[in-house]
Design a protein around this nucleic acid. Structure first.
Lengths: 132, 132
DNA sequence: TATAAATGATACCATATTAGTATCATTTTG
DNA sequence: CAAAATGATACTAATATGGTATCATTTATA
């Protein structure tokens, strides 16, 4: 099972790198070189981060992306929500009819409990806290 | 994110139903009717449960499957391991080179911690405990 | 002993998700 | 006006999941 998908992972790395020089405008070209992430994929990711107000974007020659939000206020869960959709451990498995014999609620409750734990943990993890 | 896939889910339901009459030999035909699971898919699942010694199988006319293991000794994690592979939250994301700036271990450690929690919880959930 | 009803084994197909590409439009600087 | 950047968006590829199909083998029983 994958907690974090590739795009989320790339986003983390990129933001951490940008946090190194918080006032600098980075072009995709520069980032793709430093991070070794396929250029058009990274571009898409950056555009999404821009739409979600984590980055500022500057068009035109000499343009690029600038960290808008403090890295200490960006949480892993935010990025997961952006790239992976709202976090949940069920994802429609129990929208279908439950097994006639199982007290579905029992399994569901237990899964919900785990979900709550994970959410709490994920909320706590800021990107800032991942840096040295 | 999906903690439990369809085949695991079907296996749970099937085993719970079979636990109702622990000495009875169930044919695929009967189970598929009662559970509303696509017949060939259920068949595959039952064969896998047989290979994993959770069910006994009887070939030939009048044959079918019999619960071999006590439902109280079958754990959710067992089924997940059988149908979904060894449980892990990483799944090779960190086999690739880590981001130069992130202290990967920090993120990894946190994920490992969550993984351990989930494993502990999943180990505790026996199918028996899901029944009324 | 032939037949029907069952599982064993295994290869195949369909769908959904994830990962990544391509392209054209627009903006900005020089 | 040209070059270098992002915006928007549609497309393709790879992988994982969900499900089928088929032929071989076994067994009960008429």
């Amino acid at each position: 099972m994958r907690l974090i998908t590739r795009d989320t992972d790339y986003a983390i790395r990129t933001l951490c790198l940008m946090a190194d020089r918080p006032k600098k405008v980075f072009s995709v070209s520069e980032l793709t070189k430093k991070l070794n992430i396929p250029r058009p994929f990274l571009r898409k990711i950056l555009q999404i981060l821009h739409k979600n107000k984590i980055l500022e974007a500057f068009k035109g020659k000499g343009g690029g992306f600038l960290l808008k939000k403090s890295i200490d206020k960006i949480y892993l869960l935010d990025l997961m929500n952006i790239f992976q959709g709202r976090f949940s451990l069920n994802r429609c498995l129990f929208k279908r009819k439950p097994c006639p014999r199982i007290d579905t609620c029992k399994l569901r409750k237990r899964i919900k409990k785990m979900e709550r734990y994970l959410l709490d943990e994920l909320k706590k993890i800021s990107l800032g806290s991942l840096l040295n």
